[in-house]
Design a protein around this nucleic acid. Structure first.
Lengths: 157, 157
DNA sequence: TCGAACGTTCAGAGATCTGTAAATGCTCTG
DNA sequence: CAGAGCATTTACAGATCTCTGAACGTTCGA
């Protein structure tokens, strides 16, 4: 374990902290960044316990939150009975794509309100703007993420 | 207080709940949505206490979190010594714009890691993708928000 | 079929967050 | 300039969240 590993660990912890501050579970964030900043290709649950000084139960919980979101995945590990985890390719794009669900519920909340209040009132105008904004964002964000994928794939070659 | 007000209150509470689940403070979210779904133009701190059944201290705290982010503002209220609050015009665009700070720290986290690990390694490639993605998003998001502002303002007339 | 090696679940301890009530501070009014 | 009427601050209590440790379940190899 050379100097570099220690520095990468610090980077990982710092990022985990800011992610935690913007709503992600603390341990979930730490597991994610550990995988992101690891010099290994994959890490086992035991590796994560050791690195982060947390119990296997905590690792299990975090991992099972991260997998459904598409941030990490189980890696096939022939000849090993342990689960190996790795950070997923394009995970960030996936993460941002998931935000669409939120944009959607924002749009819906506005719609609900408009059904009750109509457009011709103070509330009506506020909600109308809100609905317009989130409708716009939903459409454009999806397009934007696709655009990035294309240009990144093109740049790879 | 007719039927509509009750229904709007419910909408407000539902939205507050989903906002709370995505990281916003519970009370802060409730104050925000109360102002958003209010049929009045503005609400005083006392109004908010009564509506949400919370103490004036809690209102004060929430309000002082919302104002710096640009979601709400104090409204001039001639002849009244109470503070009047209102939901701000284009607040949603502002909110999304604030996310840029997050995008920025993501980009930075990647940059930090790359300084340590270089680009030619497993970590290097992961961080490179991350940096590319957040760089892209930062540029495009700002543009997107401007675009919405323009088209919305155009539609108004 | 047994047992070793893991992963998962769950009750409970501990830490953290959040709202209240009361004290404090500020600003107009009379 | 006194004091009424608010807003803000603070210590603390209560609620909530989160991790641990141990029990349990599962899989695989002998």
């Amino acid at each position: 374990m050379d100097e570099r590993d220690t520095q990468l660990r610090e980077c990982a912890e710092r990022l985990a902290l800011t992610l935690a501050q913007s709503g992600m579970q603390r341990t979930t964030a730490r597991v994610m960044t550990a995988l992101l900043f690891s010099r290994q290709q994959t890490m086992t649950a035991a590796d994560l316990c050791k690195e982060l000084h947390i119990s296997s139960g905590a690792v299990s919980g975090a991992v099972n939150q991260l997998i459904p979101t598409g941030m990490i995945e189980r890696a096939p590990a022939p000849g090993s009975r342990r689960d190996h985890y790795r950070f997923r390719e394009h995970a960030w794009a996936t993460l941002m794509g998931n935000q669409n669900a939120l944009l959607d519920s924002m749009w819906n909340a506005a719609a609900e309100g408009l059904k009750v209040a109509g457009r011709d009132s103070a509330v009506g105008r506020r909600l109308d703007e809100m609905q317009d904004f989130y409708g716009f964002m939903q459409r454009e964000m999806a397009a934007l993420i696709d655009k990035w994928r294309e240009q990144y794939e093109a740049g790879e070659r």
